[in-house]
Simulated scan of single mutants.
Amino acid sequence: MSVTADVSDKAGNPATQASNPISVDIAAPTIAITGPLAGDDVINATEKGQPLTISGTTTGVENGQQVTVTVGVKTYTATVTDNAWSVTVPAEAVGELPTTGSVSVTADVSDKAGNPATQASNPISVDIAAPTIAITGPLAGDDVINATEKGQPLTISGTTTGVENGQQVTVTVGVKTYTATVTDNAWSVTVPAEAVGELPTTGSVSVTADVSDKAGNPATQASNPISVDIAAPTIAITGPLAGDDVINATEKGQPLTISGTTTGVENGQQVTVTVGVKTYTATVTDNAWSVTVPAEAVGELPTTVLCL
C-alpha cells in the first residue's frame, strides 16, 4: 500500500514528495512439533539420561525467526530455516524432569510482521519404573525333565508387574527362543515336544524370560534352569533272603529283613517292597535301602510257596 506525504512552503515551492509504502500482513503463521517425542512420547529410564531432540515445522515464517520451546519449566530457542526448526534438550535437563507423570512441551513463533502462530503442544510422559518378570516353577513339576517328559511338550508360564497387555515376553530355552504375550500380567508359552526331545540328555538347561514395558523399561531377566535326567536308575535286592532264600519253621516266627541297593537314585526316594500280597516302604540313603517285615506278617505267609 502506497503512503505519500506532500507539502509546500508559503512561497508555493513544493517539496519532493515523500513516499513510504507499507505492507499489510495479517495471515497467522503456523507451527507444529514433530512427534512422537523420544519415539513414543514417553521418556524411559534409559532416555532420562540422554539428550532429547525436539523438532518441528512452520508455515508462513521467514528464515531466521526464533522459535521458543518450553519443556516443563525450562525454555530453549531454535531458529527457523526453510520452515523447519530443531532444538536439543541437554541430558542433564532431561535428567531433572519429574520421574513420573506428564511434562508439558510447547513451541511458539511469530512471523516478521509479528503475527503469532497458535502454540503447538506435544506433552511427553516420564516412566522410569522398571517392570518385573518371574517364571512360575518348578518347571516340569520338579525342575527335572525325565525320560518320559523328554518326549512331551513343556509349558513355561510366569507373571509380570508393571507390564501392559500385549507386550511380548521372550523365553529362551537352551539355544531356542519362543515368544509369549502378556495378558493381565500373566504369560505362557509351550515348547513343542520335538524341541524338548532335542535338549541334551543330561545336565542343566538354561531357561530365561525377558520383557519390557511400553515405555521401553526392561525387567531384570527371570531365570529358572531345568535339569535333564533320562538315565534309568537301577535297584537290586541283596540275597539270599533269610540266609538261603528259604524261610524255615523257626524263621516263620521271626521278622524278615529285606535290604538292597540302587544306582542313580537320590537320597530320600521311596522304595516299594512287595512280599506276597503286602507292601512295605523303605527310604534310599546313599543308594542303599532296607525294610523289615514284621514277624506277624512272616507268620502269615503261605507254608510252601515262593512269596517274593
Results as ranks from 00 to 15, higher is better:
residue 3 V to A: 11
residue 3 V to E: 08
residue 8 S to L: 08
residue 9 D to A: 08
residue 10 K to A: 15
residue 12 G to L: 10
residue 12 G to I: 07
residue 14 P to T: 14
residue 15 A to N: 13
residue 20 N to T: 13
residue 20 N to V: 11
residue 24 V to L: 14
residue 25 D to Y: 10
residue 27 A to V: 15
residue 27 A to R: 14
residue 33 I to C: 06
residue 37 L to C: 03
residue 39 G to D: 02
residue 39 G to P: 00
residue 42 V to H: 07
residue 44 N to G: 02
residue 47 E to L: 11
residue 50 Q to W: 05
residue 51 P to Q: 13
residue 54 I to Q: 00
residue 54 I to C: 01
residue 54 I to D: 00
residue 63 N to W: 03
residue 66 Q to T: 15
residue 68 T to N: 12
residue 68 T to Y: 08
residue 74 K to P: 03
residue 75 T to V: 10
residue 75 T to P: 03
residue 78 A to P: 06
residue 81 T to K: 10
residue 83 N to W: 10
residue 84 A to R: 15
residue 87 V to C: 03
residue 89 V to D: 00
residue 90 P to V: 12
residue 92 E to F: 11
residue 92 E to P: 04
residue 94 V to C: 02
residue 96 E to G: 14
residue 99 T to F: 15
residue 100 T to I: 12
residue 109 V to A: 08
residue 112 K to L: 12
residue 116 P to M: 10
residue 116 P to W: 05
residue 117 A to M: 04
residue 123 P to A: 02
residue 124 I to R: 05
residue 130 A to W: 08
residue 136 T to F: 01
residue 137 G to M: 05
residue 140 A to W: 06
residue 141 G to V: 09
residue 142 D to A: 11
residue 142 D to W: 13
residue 142 D to V: 12
residue 143 D to S: 12
residue 147 A to F: 04
residue 147 A to Y: 03
residue 147 A to C: 07
residue 149 E to S: 07
residue 158 G to M: 03
residue 159 T to Y: 02
residue 159 T to H: 06
residue 160 T to N: 14
residue 162 G to T: 06
residue 163 V to R: 03
residue 168 Q to L: 13
residue 171 V to S: 04
residue 177 T to M: 04
residue 178 Y to M: 12
residue 183 T to E: 06
residue 185 N to Y: 01
residue 186 A to F: 03
residue 187 W to Q: 09
residue 190 T to W: 01
residue 192 P to T: 13
residue 192 P to G: 12
residue 197 G to A: 12
residue 200 P to R: 06
residue 201 T to D: 12
residue 202 T to D: 10
residue 204 S to V: 11
residue 205 V to Y: 09
residue 211 V to C: 05
residue 212 S to P: 00
residue 212 S to M: 01
residue 214 K to S: 02
residue 217 N to A: 08
residue 220 T to E: 09
residue 221 Q to D: 06
residue 222 A to C: 07
residue 224 N to C: 09
residue 224 N to H: 09
residue 228 V to N: 07
residue 230 I to T: 11
residue 230 I to L: 10
residue 230 I to V: 15
residue 232 A to W: 03
residue 232 A to M: 04
residue 236 A to V: 14
residue 237 I to H: 08
residue 251 E to K: 05
residue 252 K to S: 12
residue 254 Q to G: 05
residue 257 T to C: 09
residue 258 I to T: 01
residue 260 G to Y: 01
residue 261 T to Y: 01
residue 261 T to S: 09
residue 266 E to N: 10
residue 267 N to I: 05
residue 267 N to D: 04
residue 272 T to I: 13
residue 272 T to G: 05
residue 277 V to S: 11
residue 281 T to R: 04
residue 281 T to I: 09
residue 281 T to M: 06
residue 282 A to M: 10
residue 283 T to H: 04
residue 284 V to M: 08
residue 284 V to Y: 05
residue 286 D to G: 15
residue 286 D to K: 13
residue 287 N to F: 00
residue 288 A to T: 15
residue 289 W to K: 09
residue 291 V to H: 07
residue 295 A to V: 11
residue 300 E to Y: 08
residue 304 T to E: 09
residue 307 C to K: 14
residue 308 L to S: 13
